[in-house]
């Protein structure tokens, strides 16, 4: 099963670390990085297809278009059938992510830094979800 992995993160170090981690966790699929939500949503508006599965790692605090705004846009585009969003947060301080919790597209919250261990969990979550979708 192949996925398209979108990294939406303004911090180049996190992007760097995430790319490394994805490689290690053996998550198959093309990885594309975006510096903010706007670039990502522009890409999706152009390229989105129901036939593809999307794994999105989303940072919340970003310039131009932040994570919350991105989620609002994404909801009108993608469905839970083929899209999972993992929200990246730099702390366990969750007040600012409360309103994201209820969104069905959001698969989980991940506290930075993303370790290999966390990514393996994410991988299982992804495979479980999409393979289940496939059989039903």
């Amino acid at each position: 099963m192949n996925y398209e992995i979108l990294l939406i993160e303004d911090d180049p170090i996190f992007t760097f670390l995430l790319e490394k981690g994805i490689k290690h966790a053996d998550l198959k699929g093309d990885t594309i990085s975006f510096l903010n939500g706007k670039l990502a949503i522009e890409y999706l508006n152009k390229e989105y297809s129901d036939q593809k599965n999307y794994i999105i790692f989303l940072d919340l605090n970003m310039p131009v278009m932040n994570g919350w705004e991105f989620m609002d846009e994404l909801e009108s585009l993608a469905s839970t059938d083929n899209c999972m969003v993992f929200v990246l947060t730099s702390s366990a301080y969750r007040d600012d992510i409360e309103k994201l919790k209820k969104k069905p597209l959001v698969a989980d919250f991940v506290t930075k830094p993303i370790t290999e261990y966390l990514l393996k969990g994410i991988k299982e979550n992804i495979e479980g979800n999409f393979e289940q979708n496939q059989t039903t």
Partner: peptide
Amino acid sequence: RAPVARLMGL
């Protein structure tokens, strides 16, 4: 947290 997290990751 951001720079600390970065450090930890690195």
